[in-house]
């Protein structure tokens, strides 16, 4: 099976091509630059380098969030529309699971996370089999750390935003926390592809971003409805 994988859900942009289960090529950048300008040239490059033609693809895998709303939509629009054009399935992979896969050799639990500003993070808890032990959500890092502390488990943190939270993680969890070096702290696009190969594709039109958060206007509107 030939898979194209796309991840623009956070500032690391990744594209990978898998040919019959082997990684044929990967393209990853770590700049905070416009994914909309750079994604399609990157896909074009990896496809050319690996000698893969669009019509030879069997499936597209995409990291569908959580992350930057705009970034998630750029990747998902591209993956869905390309799959639709080619008449092939598309599979959405949680951006958190993609990051968690970096820690697949860790004995304890894995907490991938993305900073969501104002003390908030997107996170969830995975085990090494990639089973979701605690559901993905958007919450205060402080609350998350307390929850992990009470569990008493060893936790591996995978995040490109480690620098922002490292100090506090170690303060609260001490020896319970493991924080690897920077090169392990992001989801490689080939891991998105691998996850996409394992999952059963759903109906193409139904694939939507995994935002984990309502738009502000809608949250306010819902609160108003409740007060009525």
């Amino acid at each position: 099976m030939n898979i194209l994988a796309i991840d623009t859900s956070n500032y690391v942009m990744g594209v990978a091509v898998l040919r019959d289960g082997e990684v044929a090529g990967e393209y990853v950048t770590h700049m905070k630059k416009n994914h909309s300008i750079r994604l399609m040239p990157a896909i074009d490059q990896v496809m050319k380098d690996t000698g893969m033609k669009p019509e030879e693809l069997d499936r597209i895998a995409v990291a569908h969030g959580p992350g930057s709303y705009t970034g998630v939509r750029i990747g998902l629009t591209t993956a869905k529309t390309m799959a639709w054009s080619l008449g092939i399935p598309v599979v959405g992979v949680s951006s958190l699971e993609a990051a968690a896969r970096q820690g697949a050799f860790f004995q304890g639990y894995i907490s991938p996370f993305f900073d969501a500003r104002r003390g908030l993070v997107y996170t969830g808890l995975y085990d090494r089999e990639m089973t979701l032990v605690k559901e993905e959500r958007n919450l205060l890092m402080e609350d998350w750390l307390q929850e992990l502390k009470e569990s008493g488990e060893q936790v591996l943190f995978i995040s490109q935003d480690t620098a922002v939270h490292k100090e506090r993680i170690l303060e609260v969890l001490g020896d319970q926390a493991v924080i690897p070096a920077a090169p392990y702290q992001f989801a490689r696009p080939s891991l998105v592809a691998a996850a996409g190969a394992d999952k059963e594709p759903g109906p193409l039109h139904d694939l939507v971003p995994n935002y984990l958060r309502l738009p502000e206007a809608e949250a306010k509107w819902l609160a108003q409805q409740e007060n009525k």
């Binding site: 909309s36 994604l39 399609m40 896909i43 074009d44 669009p54 709303y69 705009t70 939509r73 750029i74 629009t77 591209t78 993956a79 529309t81 390309m82 054009s85 080619l86």
Partner: peptide, 19 residues
């Protein structure tokens, strides 16, 4: 901008997929 991005990336994807 966010609205335009969906159309622009969809159009690029069709054009790329079908050359």
């Amino acid at each position: 901008v966010g609205a335009l991005l969906v159309g622009v990336n969809a159009a690029k994807s069709i054009a790329f997929a079908k050359q």
